[in-house]
Design a protein around this nucleic acid. Structure first.
Length: 486
DNA sequence: AAACAGGAGTAAG
DNA sequence: CTTACTCCTGTTT
């Protein structure tokens, strides 16, 4: 559930003078030197382990030695723009869709205009949103007339600024607070008590030498209970074992949290084998954008989760050849598998109050490993939900129309579930009614929510003048009334 | 079959 | 009181 933003910031602020090498794609690293296992290498390894890590390794290939490092993830908003092209929607130019939305100066005064759509909405809203005073009142009463809102120019946001957006940056910031609150009770004890078990995940990845080969790392021996780095003949700088234990444990915890949080953001199961086709698309899209990798046509991954996990790394690279994006996707999926498996083992371990005696390799999670249903965001976030009640509260007061706009404002995340057809006129289409309903139910803590009920609520908006059916009625296509579409 | 439409009862704020 | 959830019947695509 949590983004380890602290970890992110750590990598973000890491001096760029740290030697970076050995992380080139296999095709580019043939015959290159073996890179000593150094703290810097370990940092790279940890970045690969952490889904939230910036993608320096992939972009610092020898072919692009001068490539500017991508912006750190939390601040990197612009990379999201590319995602509009992912599903082949007719928005080929990054500046022709969102960028062409008239600015506020061209719009009538509106309580919304200064915030959401004056500029590329998924980007520029952030500073304003975060800058709002915490006491910013709820500016709208949907029961009122549309016209009455035009006078509320003192408000800059149509929604409460806190937790009402489901974009990644907000989650990062939000979860950083939560994380601070749980560090003492969760992370630190885990390092002491569960380090051996935690290392199983990493060990399983490292024992699969492809991981080391991918990083072009010199293999180092691993022993149960701790990671010991042998004194290397090259006199490499070596971390002492306790330090490595700590960072490895942090990295593994980070990976688990990343998986859980991504589940929440995308509304997908932590078990990749249960992903639908659209789940797969969402995950691929998210992961590519996350690592600042070039997007691929949606049809390249037109498959469900069961088919996805069956793909070999070569098949991934055939589908996403640029910058070895396929390898990254493949590696990330392996982490998901491992994290999912680890989560299951963790639960087993918790029941038994003793470590699992036999380390299980990060293999395929079989279906019987997973007892959760397809709406398993909660299942994979037990730790976080146990400590994040505060974050959950306050998010149940959102109106449906606001929630839908929230989803629409994050096309990079939810574009496969709901998207604008005509933003300027407020026309949108629900592409995946099941998922939208599931997300809505999750937000409102209504597990029984479905599209039938959700659409009933939407239809109530007809009378209220918040939404309407489009002139030429289309299935799953709705339209916001002014000014709700602004 | 899925989506659409809308009546009606209920809960929660 | 409003909003949304829920259940429902019937219609449309």
């Amino acid at each position: 559930m949590l983004w380890e933003s602290g970890f992110l910031e750590e990598t973000d602020t890491m001096p760029q003078t740290v030697p970076r090498s050995g992380c080139s794609p296999p095709s580019a690293s043939q015959g290159e030197r073996a890179v000593p296992t150094s703290p810097a290498d370990l940092q790279h390894l940890l970045r690969l382990l952490g889904a939230a890590s910036p993608p320096e390794p992939m972009l610092h290939s020898p072919q692009n030695p001068h490539t500017k490092p991508p912006p750190p993830y939390p601040e990197d908003n612009h990379f999201l723009e590319r995602l509009y092209d992912f599903e082949g929607y007719p928005t080929p130019s990054p500046s022709s869709d969102e960028g062409s939305i008239p600015t506020v100066a061209l719009q009538p005064p509106s309580p919304y205009s200064s915030l959401q759509y004056t500029t590329p909405v998924y980007i520029k809203e952030e500073p304003n949103r975060l800058g709002l005073p915490a006491t910013s009142p709820y500016p709208l009463s949907p029961s009122g007339s549309c016209i009455s809102y035009s006078s509320h120019t003192q408000y800059s946001s149509p929604v409460p600024q806190h937790e009402e957006y489901l974009d990644i940056e907000a989650l990062l910031k939000e979860n950083q607070i939560l994380q601070d609150s749980i560090k003492q009770s969760y992370i630190t004890p885990k390092i002491e008590v569960e380090e051996s078990r935690d290392h199983n995940l990493l060990r399983s990845a490292l024992e699969d030498r492809t991981f080391q080969e991918r990083l072009n790392l010199r293999p180092f021996p691993l022993e149960l209970g701790s990671v010991k780095m042998e004194e290397s003949s090259g006199g490499d700088e070596a971390l002492v074992a306790p330090d490595i234990d700590r960072v490895l444990s942090m990295a593994i915890e980070q990976s688990k949290r990343d998986v859980d949080n991504t589940c929440t953001v995308l509304g997908i199961s932590p078990d990749p084998t249960q992903w639908s086709t659209s789940d797969v698309k969402s995950w691929v899209m998210f992961t590519l954008q996350h690592f600042n990798l070039p997007l691929v046509p949606a049809e390249n991954f037109a498959m469900d989760g069961a088919a996805l996990v069956a793909l070999t790394e070569e098949e991934f690279n055939q589908r996403a050849p640029q910058l070895q994006a396929g390898s990254t996707l493949h590696a990330q999926l392996e982490i998901w598998k491992a994290a999912r498996h680890e989560a299951w083992r963790t639960s087993q371990w918790s029941e038994q109050h003793q470590p699992s005696p036999n380390p299980t390799p990060a293999g395929q999670p079989s279906a019987d490993d997973m007892s959760d249903d397809d709406d398993s965001e909660t299942a994979g976030t037990s730790t976080a939900t146990a400590t994040s009640g505060k974050a959950k509260t306050g998010s149940t007061h959102i109106h449906l129309w606001q929630f839908l706009k929230e989803l629409l404002a994050s096309p990079h995340v939810h574009g496969s579930a709901i998207r604008w057809l005509d933003r300027s006129n407020g026309v949108f289409k629900i592409e995946d009614s099941v998922r939208v309903a599931r997300l809505w139910g999750k937000r409102k803590n209504r597990p029984a929510m479905n599209y039938d009920k959700l659409s009933r609520s939407i239809r109530q908006y007809y009378k209220k003048g918040i939404m309407k059916k489009t002139e030429r009625s289309q299935r799953l296509v709705y339209q916001f009334c002014h000014p709700y579409c602004l």
